[in-house]
Amino acid sequence: MKHRERNLFITACTLPALILFAVFALYPFGKAFVMAFYDWSGLSEHARYIGLNNFKTLWQDDIVWKALVNNLFLLLVVPVLTMGASMLFAALLTQRKIKGKKLYRTVFFFPNVLSIVVISVLWSFVYHPTFGILNSFLELIGLESWTRAWLGDSSTVLWAIAFPMIWQSIGYYMIIYIAAIEGVPTDMYEAASIDGASAFRQFRSLTFPLIWNVVRVTIVFFLIGVFNGSFAFIKVMTNAGPNHGSEVLMTYMYSQAFNNGNFGYAMAIGVFMLLITVGLALISEKLTERDSVEY
């Protein structure tokens, strides 16, 4: 009796969310998957089934592979640097006696509350070839030969896009890591310092293993965040240029769907992206499989 009531209650609680999820996530998802097998402009009610043709095109489309390489570059560079920097700041702001800790936390977190479009516009002025602060600074310190059109050069454009992405997300991950580090019981550190462990040693042998579970979660966040988040940065800063130099799968999918009226193909790119994200999530899961230490 009691059991039944409880089940009913649980069902009632989960049902609304389930319905919303089904209508707004599962249905469009399934629909996108199906449309990948159609020749459809996104406008008419007539869609022609063409089997795997969209995927065949995709396989032979140079731009897709170029975009994928760019995606992978960002997926490697942005998470690694963001994780390193935010972990460093988190460790410093929790372990050390630093004046104005609260101020730093706010300052580091600040970029995260700005809109991505605002950040992109801001940074496109930082990189502005004639009056941008970066080139002006290089000229000031006598490195004039280093100045360049950062966003217009295919050899620097990806780094120039990665940097604002890192800058924007450091604060967010720093807060997560700080919360995790603060959860570690202080008596362990006391014991460690009595044993004569240095601050670095404490971080390596105590803090890091103890917050490993949180780090694992953030790695998945990184992958998804970079995959999806790069779109707005690129759209505003370079419009995927120069000559597809900063094209990623997301921007390519967008231009196929909304500039080229080729929805079916765009959905095929979407499915391809889905496979990659799922693949990456599984790989990262495997790579980071390691018993977390309990305390």
Binding site: S124, Y127, H128, P129, T130, R148, A149, W150, L151, G152, D153, T238, N239, G241, P242
Partner: peptide
């Protein structure tokens, strides 16, 4: 110099 990186307004 830098033309390639500018948007239309810039």
């Amino acid at each position: 110099k830098g033309t390639v990186a500018l948007n239309h307004t810039q």
